[in-house]
């Protein structure tokens, strides 16, 4: 059986304000899944709700028919860059090694295997030369790649990224998408919150279109139909034929 996340009737409110309403959704492994929707649509909220990082009013989240929250060791989560204190006294190496903490276990030191895996992960995101650099002295794109390396080092099954492309350079975007594709091809769940409807959206296999409730989900081209976008963005977005070009307004 192919791995999948199943979400049943998930609802979230913040102090009586409804943020998400009755979400039913399947996210399958082996595909690069993007989550899109207007500002305030509840994209980050849904991601956090899936991972059990916020209280939900209602609903369940399963991974392979078992509550996801009981299998957290296989989850890698990279929060929005703005959520991190980049003045924290840590180096690139320190952050990547955080990905090995649950595998290492309590009261133990990192093994040589763990160190090698962290090195390999840094290699993949082309950040090896910055090993000893304090994280505050990196560019936005480099910081994002360090967090990607952390999730790779973790050897997770479920990879969740909140707005990984905000404020990153072209080269970083290419590196990150390349790794996302490889992770998806190797049978992982890769779920990416993305507010940008530009050209880069063609990188995703599946999309989840959200605005407080689920508008559409599944194959990218199916989801990006004009009627779905009209419903999600209140008619403010034109999405032209992919073969020409895409435009978000």
């Amino acid at each position: 059986m192919e791995s999948a996340i199943n979400i049943n009737n998930l609802s979230v409110s913040y102090r009586n304000i409804e943020a998400l309403r009755g979400i039913n959704l399947n996210i399958s492994a082996g595909k690069l899944t993007g989550m899109i929707g207007p500002n305030g649509a509840g994209k980050s909220t849904l991601l956090k709700a899936i991972l059990g990082l916020i209280n939900i009013n209602n609903g369940q989240v399963f991974y392979n028919n078992k509550a996801l929250i009981e299998q957290r060791k296989i989850v890698a989560y990279v929060p929005q860059r703005s959520q991190i204190d980049w003045t924290y006294p840590a180096t690139v190496w320190d952050v990547v090694m955080m990905g090995r903490i649950t595998k290492t276990g309590w009261f133990k030191r990192f093994s040589n295997v763990s160190k090698q895996k962290a090195l390999n992960a840094l290699e993949k995101v082309e950040m090896t030369p910055f090993l000893n650099r304090p994280i505050g002295q990196l560019s936005g794109g480099q910081q994002q790649r360090v967090f990607l390396a952390r999730s790779i080092a973790q050897e997770a099954e479920i990879f969740c990224f909140d707005e990984p492309f905000v404020g990153v350079d072209q080269r970083t975007e290419a590196i990150i998408f390349n790794i996302f594709h490889k992770l998806a091809e190797s049978g992982k769940i890769v779920l990416v919150v993305n507010h940008d409807l530009g050209e880069s959206i063609t990188n995703f296999d599946d999309l989840i279109l959200l605005n407080k409730e689920l508008i559409a989900a599944g194959n990218r081209q199916e989801v990006l139909k004009q009627e779905n976008l009209d419903q999600a963005y209140n008619g403010k977005v034109m999405f032209f034929n992919e073969n020409d070009y895409n435009l978000a307004a």
Partner: peptide, 22 residues
């Protein structure tokens, strides 16, 4: 000393630490 690596993760990235089940 015993909780150094977990406390580092927690104080640096609370949500990331919670997501992996710490």
């Amino acid at each position: 000393i015993l909780l150094y690596k977990e406390l580092l993760f927690y104080t640096f990235d609370k949500q990331g630490a919670e997501a992996v089940g710490l």
